[in-house]
Amino acid sequence: MIGLDVGSTTAKKVSIEDGEIKYEITDTHNWKDLITGIDGKDIISTGYFRNTVPHHASVTEITAAIYGVRHYFPDADVIVDIGGQDTKVIDIRKNNFTINDKCSAGTGAFLEFVANYFKIELTEMGSYHIRAKRIPAINNTCGVFALSEMISQLVAGYSKEEVIAGMHYAFARRISFMIPEAESLVLIGGTVKNKGMVSALCDILKKKVFVPDEPQIVNALGALKYFS
């Protein structure tokens, strides 16, 4: 049995073999590569495409996230899942969730715009962030206008590193509005591999923040655990 999370940007496969978690990650468009030789009756799916890929059963990303996070952090209160196209905040204590997908400013797509502008890889943004000496204020809550503001800060003399750090703070501030009162929270999703963004979020929230070793596979793992 495998957990298969086909999201907006990437597809993830998880299986548990002899108690060890095995996983593979690929682009969404190549999801079929992950299930070569696997029968649909052995697949528990989740993610945007959960109902269109072969599956024995499917579960939403919200429920999958809860089961996946509990594997790593059994006492977790709040989960923040920052995906490519939306951000989900799940309050496990209250069995409650909110999803932001009306605006790119709180999604992975926002940071993708920034990386594209600077012609760098998304995975490099964290290392640029830690080299910043100052953090410019980028206050616009609209993703598109924040990019204009970012360019103005470059004109004003801030370095590429500093502007990237400023964008991480703008992003983190946007997400912080969605997060309820809690002592700690768990971050998951591909976007939280960006250490600059996580650092900005920790600084703004002043809470204990936990990130699983591989935050991108948590929902696939959760789908598998939900049905096993």
Partner: peptide
């Protein structure tokens, strides 16, 4: 829209968990 169907489905799952 599909995004709203996702919320509805997740809400049903949440109710079934409670």
């Amino acid at each position: 829209p599909e995004q709203i169907k996702l919320r509805l489905e997740a809400f049903r799952e949440a109710l079934e968990r409670s």
